[in-house]
Amino acid sequence: MTTTETRFREEVRSWLADALPADWGRGRAPSASLAGRIAEGKAWQRAVHRAGFGGLGLPVEFGGRPASATERLLFAEECAAARAPEPADIFGQLILAPTLMQLGTAEQKARFLPPVIAGDMMWCETFSEPDNGSDMANIQCRADVEGDELVVTGRKRWNSLAQFATWTMLLCRTGAPDSRGRGITFALVDLSSPGIRIEPMPMLTGDARENEVFFDRVRVPLENVLGEVDDGWRVAMAAMTTQRAIGTAELVPRLAVVVEDLVALAGRTGVGGRPAIEDPLVRDGIARCAVDVAALRRNGQQAMAASALGRPPGPEVSIAKLHWSESEQRMHRLAVEMLGLRGLLVRDDETAVDDGYWAHYWLWTHALTIHSGTSEIQRNIIAERVLGLPRNR
């Protein structure tokens, strides 16, 4: 680590010590409700920006701050160690901002990047549809060009946090119905536009994190198209690979904290009066989780380094997404298994361990292996584009 990077870590650590409540992460838990967690995340984003840590690696002219890939990871590590809230606008910061920097016009960057960096906007994705799942090339949400506008009609599903978002990244069909990836357009849509209806979808956790979004002749200015009309497939692939590469790298520090919590949990709980840490199978499970984190950290560092050198992420980022999502699911399942029947108690049960955190997030992790391309899709990509195996279809 360079002297500059060491000073940056110390700066972040000092600020976090002052910015977070004294009991945060030591008895004070994030809000139990989804709406409460989003409110905390919004407030935290604005605090990060006010402190000068918003938009690390993005141009100063848009409100960002020059930072190396290592410094971005250091910031993520310190926030995770302090158990700082997660930012609410993960889609804007993680997907839209780097995609705009890569493919946006000067006008689009000037319009959207400052409020994203400042935490004044909240974004979601409207990619998936009821009849195509992870097959984005088969979307049928229709958009026709009328004058200087797109007119959008269709239905989207599995749109995370759409009920809290102000804008969405939309994939729509502008080509012929069977044009696959050649006829898709990537548009930025104001969710307050007439003709948009959002219906939350309750999940196993009790949260309505996912949504269905309906578009009924919604008018979108052509100036909001990212890339060109019918060129949305290229934009979407850039957005998704960036999400899987950089997103995984910056998530790893929080997974490392989960491993620390697993060790602590195993030392203070168990079945039949025996601490779980005495069980060799539990120790083996925790060790595997620690190895997962070490491997993910190494892969994430390589992805961030490649990005810093201007090399776009390749299909190998599917390995990171597959490994991360299944590792997090294993971690929380291990905790539930350690707790026995008590591990199934959720937040509305006063006898639940850690206020039902482990059961809640174990249920939530089942969505992670579906989001951003299912595990099955990622395995196909790895087989065909990384290992060079023949297509099975």
Rank of each mutant, 00 (worst) to 15 (best):
R111H: 12
D131A: 00
A137Q: 05
E107L: 07
T126D: 07
V145P: 01
M122V: 15
V151D: 15
P114V: 09
S134D: 13
E146H: 11
D144P: 13
R142I: 02
M121D: 11
A143M: 03
N138S: 09
E146T: 15
I117F: 04
A118S: 04
D135F: 02
S134A: 09
C124H: 10
A110L: 06
Q108E: 03
R155G: 03
G133T: 14
C141Y: 00
W123V: 03
E129G: 00
D131G: 01
Q108A: 04
G133Y: 14
R157I: 14
L150A: 09
G154A: 07
L150Y: 11
S134R: 05
P130M: 03
T153Q: 08
Q140T: 12
D144T: 10
G154R: 02
G133L: 10
V116E: 09
R142S: 01
G154C: 04
G133D: 12
N132F: 04
N159I: 04
P115F: 15
C124R: 09
E107V: 06
V116N: 12
R155M: 02
E129M: 00
P130L: 01
V152A: 06
I139D: 14
C124V: 12
I117G: 06
R157T: 14
S128F: 11
E149Y: 10
I117P: 01
C141F: 00
N159T: 14
W158R: 06
Q140K: 08
G133N: 08
D144A: 10
G119I: 05
D135P: 01
E146D: 15
Q140S: 15
